[in-house]
Design a protein around this nucleic acid. Structure first.
Length: 967
RNA sequence: GCGGAGGUUGCCAAGCCAGGUCAAAGGCGCAGGGUUCAGGUCCCUGUCUCGUAGGAGUUCGCGAGUUCAAAUCUCGCCCUCCGCACCA
């Protein structure tokens, strides 16, 4: 049990008892609605998740203290496949899954028996989800998050489903949701699409789209797949593997000749495939097929490099521009002996002319030949070199190639522009189709089966290219605040490439599409506008509204203001007054003022949230601001359950204490950078928190008193008052500009340093010190409260303040007390001390009895101020001229030059006291302090009339840079 | 491949957008001193190099450039991390 746990529990209980964070509309009060995405409840959360939620809570608490009526709700996410997957794995007795879940459960149960009992219940996804939803909310409470739990729900709720149905019926109305064929990785054995987690090998596989070109052959088509459809004008022959099995197949009422395995694959790609005849490739070698663009006859030749398992197993040959084709053809020229068996004569092969159809700088007529020869490739079996050559030519031609004269209407155009047009042209003439393959092999499903590409007919997707949608989303993004601003680029990149996005699948937990109930809305697509649902969730559940009452009219009314409460009430049976209340509550809280989460959500969830909001809500209800913090790693390495290096959220309170964790999570890195959790850094945070409580406790019962200048306090007191108020000002600026880490450092380290410095000044009278420290403590507790709320409540009550510091107001800097002159003067004291130390070090231990300090004469201060006021460029000549033009300074001639030299050396002016008198007084008043710091008697002299100056050091004094003599 | 971020003094990490006040905040580690006198205590000081007077020199991935002046701006190069879609 950490030393903090008792205090934490106490305040959490009281907050709950007094409903401190339950937020209801207060019409006259400005509101702030903050959301952090709800956690997915398929397991225990860890300290990495905690960073994001802690940051969110910090914002909520800060805004609350700034006088906003803050709503910070939370719910839980359970739709989708993961929870279902886990349940299935546990049911199936999967050892790893069971062990992993036992580990999670041991965090929450004492005995192994309890663990097993709970695990046994995990055969129902609802039980699993609600168990973790419950413990996660307990974990959140234990960290002091200021959440309004009355509004909680889960995405699996029937009521929530009605909300999602409403959302998707809106998309349907707008025409944003469409149905079409969609390729995805698919396991033929499991008969299911597979995601990254379902794969044993090839996790990074993507889908590659080939153009399947239908070359006229006999009474059907010889179908060759290619990534370079623009090369059809350079075809000289076809390549077929003589040993592989090919088929004539009826594909959607056409006759296609392809490899047997290609035919099998096509069955998965939403084609009707019926195999008519099987035969080895050798059977068609030597026959002729017809060119796409002019129907001339072209020969089919054998080749070893053809892989019947890749694409259609039919390859058309463009030897001028494809290294594989070039070398295969050359091999046949060199040794045509094998061709006789196919009835092909050597002359016939040798008469094939390579066609040049792409013009490209730096290459000859036949770039493929260049690439092969430059690599000295001997045969078509040198796979690696050929692959490399192919890459080179592909890139070069794609980016800088131009179609030659023999390419019909495409002549003269750049390859990268013409590709799509060639495809479109062939499509118009029914000369091509698509064929999908994974881009890498092998891709193996967890069941051990080779994964293929499946095309889902009738897949529902959201079409982000629908007219107007993206434009409106851009408008929203451009007017939103993104914190830190660097992440805006990521949003912009995402917006650019967002096209179509499947939004439903056939398995998992979730809401069924109202207009096509076979499909279940997938879990990223059902979590985009639910922030609105928080505003009324407590009414829905509190009044036990039935799902069937939550009709389209209901949501139309509450969220969009359509219809009247009376009419909607008649239709739904919901009390009209309640409807009014819900509508009012939505209007009060919406829009969502800030959404805080991790950057990994930018490319999906957050972008969808923006798109979906603009699709459904009027502009005034769009998201206002998105703030982000990067993830957290542990001792330099990524946390992962499989590695076992995970610190669960639930362990934080007993292991570190909630406030210690919170301070660490806020202060160890800027939000925009990855945070490293280092165990050995934790004690330092604990120390600082303890110093805070020690100091504040000591002065808790003292009467705060502000010593104004007229009260004649010591300089040290004026200094600490100035310093503390400067810190308040800075911290407010840091919070406003999302420099959260700076806020943390200033409220902890900087504050402690300043206070310790102050307390070391022996000249401050006791009453003055205590009154001042009580005042400082009050401010300090408020500053720390958003970050360390439990400790601060404890201090607050020790100070006998009313109510909760969680609801107290954030300090405002007292302008009367901020005095840069005093702060500068104190900086001179510090720099004087370090100068003395440095000299002492150089004296190598020789005893110093007395330190003589000489303060520069007043005219030098005048000179510095004069330069400062003149606001002139820091050029030596100008400054010299400026000073010499004033008789007041000219009188000092040579010494003026020493100031100017110094300015030149320092590249400008530096801080110093306002006047010689100030500097002298400050140093004199601080001499006891200086003496205690350096352990030698200290005498302050005025350089103009030093009482004692045996080494004539006084003349070196400058404003802010006293000269010294150590005796 | 495409897109995004980044490389800072032993480690972590600010600074860079708005160039000078930057040998560069803060923390960790390490060293010395003090308190405590042996419980993961606390405080102070130091921590690039040289220097018997507060000074000088060399640093911010590498290489150029702009500028009186660059960790900060521009260009090129090298390296690292993250995302890339049906998965939350």
């Amino acid at each position: 049990m950490s030393e903090f746990a008792k205090i934490e529990k106490k305040w959490q209980k009281r907050w709950k008892r007094d409903k401190v964070f339950e937020a209801d509309p207060i019409p006259k009060k400005k509101k702030f609605f903050l959301t952090v995405p709800y956690p997915y409840t398929n397991g225990a959360l860890h300290i990495g998740h905690g960073r994001t939620y802690t940051m969110g809570d910090l914002i909520a608490r800060y805004k609350r203290m700034q006088g906003y009526n803050v709503l910070f709700p939370m719910a839980s996410h359970m739709t989708g496949t993961p929870i279902l997957g886990i349940v299935e794995r546990i049911k199936a007795g999967d050892k790893t899954a069971i062990e992993q879940y036992k580990r999670d459960l041991r965090l929450y149960f004492e005995t192994e028996e309890e663990v097993n009992t709970q695990l046994a219940k995990f055969t129902d996804p609802w039980v699993t989800a609600s168990f973790f939803a419950k413990v996660i909310s307990q974990d959140f409470d234990a960290l002091g998050y200021s959440i309004d739990w009355r509004r909680k729900f889960t995405t699996g709720d029937k009521e929530y489903s009605k909300f999602i149905e409403w959302q998707y019926s809106k998309f349907k109305e707008k025409g944003y949701i469409k149905q079409g064929d969609y390729p995805l990785l698919y396991c033929p054995k499991c008969e299911n699409p597979v995601g990254e987690d379902d794969l044993l090998a090839g996790e990074t596989a993507k889908i590659k789209e080939f153009t399947a070109i239908k070359w006229g052959f006999e009474d059907g088509y010889l179908v060759a797949a290619t990534l370079r459809p623009e090369t059809i004008f350079g075809v000289t022959n076809m390549w077929i593997d003589p040993k592989a099995i090919y088929v004539w197949a009826r594909v959607n009422s056409e006759k296609w000749l392809i490899s047997k395995s290609a035919a099998e694959k096509l069955k998965l790609q939403a084609k009707e495939v019926e195999i008519i005849e099987k035969f080895p490739g050798s059977k068609i070698i030597g026959k002729k097929f017809r060119a796409i663009h002019d129907d001339h006859e072209i020969l089919i030749l054998p080749a070893d490099f053809v892989d019947p398992d890749n694409a259609t197993g039919v390859v058309y040959s463009v030897p001028g521009h494809a290294p594989f084709d070039y070398i295969a053809l050359r091999d046949l020229w060199d040794d045509p002996s094998g061709l006789e068996q196919y009835g092909i004569s050597p002359e016939e092969v040798r008469s094939i002319e390579i066609i040049s159809m792409i013009d490209i700088d730096g290459y000859s007529e036949f770039p493929a030949k260049d690439a092969v020869e430059s690599r000295d490739i001997k045969s078509q079996n040198e796979d690696e070199k050929l692959e490399d050559a192919t890459q080179e030519i592909y890139k070069a031609e794609f980016y800088s190639g131009i179609m030659k004269d023999n390419c019909m209407q495409f002549s003269g155009r750049a390859i990268k522009d013409v590709k799509d047009d060639v495809i479109a042209w062939m499509k118009e003439n029914n000369k091509c189709d698509v064929f999908y393959e994974p881009d890498i092999r092998p891709v193996i499903c967890k069941c051990g089966t080779e994964v293929e590409v499946g095309v889902f007919a009738g897949q529902w997707f959201l079409d982000y290219l629908s007219p107007g949608w993206k434009e409106t989303a851009w408008k929203a993004l451009n007017s939103m605040k993104i914190l830190p601003e660097t992440f805006r680029n990521l949003f912009e990149a995402t917006f650019d490439w967002l096209t179509q996005r499947p939004c439903a699948r056939k398995r998992g937990i979730g809401t069924r599409l109202p207009f096509d109930p076979e499909w279940i809305i997938e879990s990223l697509s059902d979590s985009t506008i639910y922030m609105a649902y928080y505003t009324i969730a407590h009414f829905i559940y509190g009044n036990k509204l039935k799902p069937e009452q939550l009709t389209l009219e209901f949501f139309d009314h509450v969220f969009l203001g359509k219809g009247t409460p009376k009419k909607v009430s008649e239709k739904t049976g919901i009390d009209a007054e309640l409807l009014k209340k819900m509508r009012a509550e939505f209007l009060y809280w919406y829009p969502n003022d800030q959404r805080h989460t991790a950057p990994s959500h930018i490319s999906n969830h957050l972008s969808f949230a923006i798109f979906h909001h603009v699709a459904i809500f009027p502009e005034k209800h769009w998201l206002k601001c998105i703030s982000l913090n990067e993830h957290l790693i542990l001792e330099g390495t990524k946390m992962s359950k499989s590695k076992g290096n995970v610190i669960p959220l639930v362990e934080i309170p007993k292991k570190y204490g909630a406030d210690v964790y919170r301070i660490y999570a806020i202060s160890a890195a800027e939000p925009g950078s990855i945070m490293d959790w280092r165990e050995r850094d934790v004690p330092a945070v604990r120390t600082r928190l303890r110093q805070f409580t020690d100091i504040v406790s000591k002065y808790a019962r003292k009467e705060p008193r502000v010593f104004l200048k007229k009260d004649g306090p010591t300089l040290a007191t004026r200094w600490i008052l100035s310093k503390v108020n400067s810190i308040v000002k800075l911290c407010t600026e840091f919070m406003e500009s999302f420099k959260i880490r700076d806020y943390a450092i200033y409220t902890t380290s900087e504050m402690i340093r300043a206070i310790n410095h102050y307390l070391k000044h022996p000249e401050v009278p006791k009453a003055e010190r205590e009154g001042t420290m009580a005042y400082v403590s009050d401010i300090w507790v408020r500053l720390m409260a958003p970050m360390a709320p439990h400790t601060c409540e404890e201090m607050w009550s020790k100070m006998r303040r009313e109510g909760y510091v969680s609801l107290a107001h954030w300090p405002k800097p007292d302008k009367r007390l901020i005095d840069p002159k005093i702060e500068n003067a104190f900086a001179v004291v510090s720099s004087t001390i370090s100068d003395i130390r440095e000299i002492m070090k150089l004296l190598k231990g020789k005893q110093v009895s007395t330190v003589h300090v000489y303060v520069a004469p007043q005219w030098m201060f005048d000179a510095m101020n004069s330069i400062r006021e003149a606001n002139m460029p820091m050029v030596v000549g100008n400054i010299m001229k400026h000073l010499m033009s004033d008789p007041k300074f000219r009188a000092y001639g040579k010494q003026v030059k020493s100031i100017v030299d110094r300015i030149a050396k320092e590249n400008g002016l530096w801080d110093h006291s306002y006047s010689a008198k100030d500097e002298y007084t400050t140093l004199r008043d601080s001499s006891a302090f200086i003496e205690s710091e350096i352990g030698a008697k200290t005498i302050i002299h005025k350089a103009v009339r030093p009482e004692y100056d045996p080494q004539n050091k006084a003349r070196f004094a400058l404003p802010g840079r006293v000269s010294l003599y150590l005796e």
